[in-house]
Amino acid sequence: MQNKILRTALQLLMLFLLILSVPWYRTPGTEPVIYLGMPDWVLIALTCYVVVIFINLLLWLSREDPQELDP
């Protein structure tokens, strides 16, 4: 990925998702909605982590580093 702005934006998105995974924006102690037998805040956190890892993979695979001499 040559576009530095897009790369930075994706890195910031990873940071945003990591912060979003912690339910600081919800009132502590409130009863959550249950999906698949689990509280919604757990599923949101897990979804954020899966997306972070996907973006991370995309960033590494698309990195085009300058040619280097074999060590």
Partner: peptide
């Protein structure tokens, strides 16, 4: 299955089901 697993955790660790308090959230971050 996942739903049965979730239900059993909710029954046996009910204190961890609700949205965690600020101490847990700060520790998490």
């Amino acid at each position: 299955g996942i739903t049965a697993l979730g239900n059993s955790v909710s029954q046996l660790r009910p204190e961890t089901v609700a949205v965690p308090d600020s101490n847990v959230q700060i520790r998490w971050l």
